[in-house]
Every structure is written in structure tokens, then in C-alpha cells.
């Protein structure tokens, strides 16, 4: 897997725990369309099922996102990766890492897991071609030893896809 195991990460701060509980409650009342949170008792790692939107290249396909929260969430972005097999997309690497600015430089505490999910689905939905990023092999090779995508220095390609 691409991230350290649950037990070796730093536990959530009180503030992070409280905020995540509220996000989870809100999610249960009002889940984003096309997503399903898999119920576990681990607040720090959410596994979310994503269903490709009807009428897009990913219709009838199901993927899983793994969302890991840092100790000081929401001051830092959550780490969001697809659990391989990841969807074929020009901004998604075969190891599940996603090139999306709001997950790194453009994160803000005004965002939520739910809004991040919607951004990812919209990124999938607007794709016109099912292919890996051009630098996929080089990137994935560099990421061996389970490096987190948050350590990558991202170069955001374009905002059309």
C-alpha cells in the first residue's frame, strides 16, 4: 500500500477528531451522489467507493479511494489515493496517486471530504480519453517504498481534464 499503516501514523488531534466526526455525520445525512463510505471504526482512514457517473467513460465502473487524515487535519490536506487498480485517466497514476491541486497546494480548510470526492468525480467525468499520464512509468518507479503523494512536487498539467 502507498502509505504507512494505521498504527504507525500520528493519532488525530482532538480538533481533527471532532471535525471528522462532524464531517462523517454530515456525510451520513447527505452523502455525495456516486459515493459510498465503507463503514469501519477507523476515523483516520476512510475507504470510499466511487461509481463512475452515467454517460461518462467510467460509467458502470467502481473504484475505491483511500483517504488518510493527518494529525492536524484540516490544517493539512488529507492524503487521497485510489486503491489500485486505479481508473485509467491522464491525471491518475497506476499506483493510485492523483494529480489534483486541491489535494496539495490548493487545499483549504473550507473543503471537506465530500467536496474533494466531488472534485475527483468531476475530474473523471470530464475526461475524453482513457490513458495514463505520459510520465506514469517514471513517476511510479520513483514512488517505490510506499512514498506518499504528498511528498511529490506536483506540476499541475492543465485544468481541462
Amino acid at each position: 500500500m502507498t502509505s504507512p499503516s494505521a498504527s504507525s501514523r500520528k493519532a488525530l488531534s482532538k480538533i481533527a477528531c471532532n471535525r471528522l466526526q462532524k464531517e462523517l455525520m454530515e456525510w451520513q445525512v447527505n452523502p455525495p451522489a456516486g459515493f459510498k463510505h465503507k463503514v469501519t471504526d477507523n476515523l483516520q482512514r476512510w475507504i470510499i467507493e466511487v461509481n463512475g457517473a452515467p454517460g461518462t467513460l467510467y460509467a458502470n465502473e467502481m473504484y475505491q479511494l483511500q483517504v488518510d487524515f493527518p494529525e492536524h487535519y484540516p490544517m493539512e490536506a488529507p492524503q487521497v489515493v485510489f486503491i489500485p487498480p486505479a481508473p485509467l485517466h491522464p491525471h491518475i497514476y497506476s499506483n493510485g496517486h492523483i494529480c489534483l491541486d486541491i489535494l496539495y497546494d490548493s487545499w483549504s480548510p473550507a473543503m471537506t471530504v465530500s467536496s474533494v470526492c466531488i472534485s475527483i468525480l468531476s475530474m473523471l467525468s470530464s475526461s475524453t480519453v482513457k490513458q495514463r499520464p505520459v510520465d506514469n512509468d517514471r513517476y511510479v518507479k520513483n514512488c517505490k517504498n510506499g512514498r506518499s503523494p504528498k511528498e511529490t512536487r506536483w506540476w499541475f498539467h492543465d485544468d481541462k481534464v
Binding site: 482532538k14 480538533i15 471532532n18 471535525r19 462532524k22 464531517e23 484540516p74 490544517m75 480548510p109 473550507a110
Partner: peptide, 12 residues
């Protein structure tokens, strides 16, 4: 609070 979602900060 728009960041921590709580009305009161924890006692800490």
C-alpha cells in the same frame, strides 16, 4: 468555527 466545526475549542 468554519475550520474546526466546533463552537467551543476543546479544553486543553
Amino acid at each position: 468555527c468554519g475550520i474546526c466545526y466546533a463552537q467551543y475549542l476543546p479544553i486543553d
